[in-house]
Design a protein around this nucleic acid. Sequence first.
DNA 1: ATCTATTGCTTGCAATATCAAGCAAAGCTA
DNA 2: TAGCTTTGCTTGATATTGCAAGCAATAGAT
Lengths: 114, 114
Amino acid sequence: MDGYGQYFKALRESKGVTLREVERQTGVSNAYLSQLESGKVKQPSPNTLYKLAQFYQVSYEMLMEKVGYPVPKSSTVPKDHSVSSAAKNKLGGISHEEEVELLQYLKFIRNRMS
Amino acid sequence: MDGYGQYFKALRESKGVTLREVERQTGVSNAYLSQLESGKVKQPSPNTLYKLAQFYQVSYEMLMEKVGYPVPKSSTVPKDHSVSSAAKNKLGGISHEEEVELLQYLKFIRNRMS
DNA sequence: ATCTATTGCTTGCAATATCAAGCAAAGCTA
DNA sequence: TAGCTTTGCTTGATATTGCAAGCAATAGAT
C-alpha cells in the first residue's frame, strides 16, 4: 500500500545506476532519493520531480500525476509513461504494478550482458 | 523583487472578496492567504495553487509558472493570464506589473456600481 | 457610546521536504 | 586477512508549507 516509491526504484535499477550517480547528475541527494524509493516521502516538489523526469527521461506531467498533484489535463487515462507510449498502446492499459514489473524485467534483460 | 504576492492580492480584490470568503470556498486558510499575498510564502504547493486557480478562474499552469515551478511547455511567453487571452492578444505582451495594475483598475470599475 | 461582527494580520505549532554526515554491509585489491 | 571503496540507508538538523487561534482596527447596529 505504499506508492510510487517502487516505481522510482524500478526506474533507477532499470537504468543500472546508483543512488549517488543520480545525485551527481540531478543534484538530488542520495539520502532523499533513498527515502523517496522506500515510500517515506509524500509529495516531492515539482522542482525535484522535474530533475528526475529529465534524468530518467520520463514525462514530468506523468510524475506529477503519480505523486498526486493536480495536472492540467486531468483525464482518467494517464497520458504518457516510462515504458514507451507505443508499447503502452500495443499492450493496452497497464496498471502501476504491471509497469513496475516491466521495468524490473527490463533491468534483468539489460543486465544479462555483463 | 517581491513576487507574485501582489498579483494574488490584486486578483482577490478585483473580485471584491475577503480573505475569509476565499477560505470558505477554497479551503485555504485566511492566515495562509494573507501570508501568500504579502510575499511571505515561497512556493505554495500545486494543490493549493490548483484550488486558487479554480476559484479565481485563472490557468493553473500559469500559476505554477508564476511561482517558479517548471512547467511542461516552458515557453518564454507565458501561456494564459487572468485578464482574458483575447485582451492580452490585443494588448500585446504585458508585464507582470502592468497586469497587476490592470486588475486594480478592473476592481475600480467593478466597484463603481454599488 | 456600547456591543458585535468583520477583516486583515501575526504568531506558535505540526507536518513535511531536503540535505549533510555518518554507518553497516558488501565488494575489491593487495 | 587487512585495508579501501562503493552502495544503500538512517538520523539529526534546517527550512517551508499550511493551519488554528487570537489580536487590533474598522464598520454597523441599537
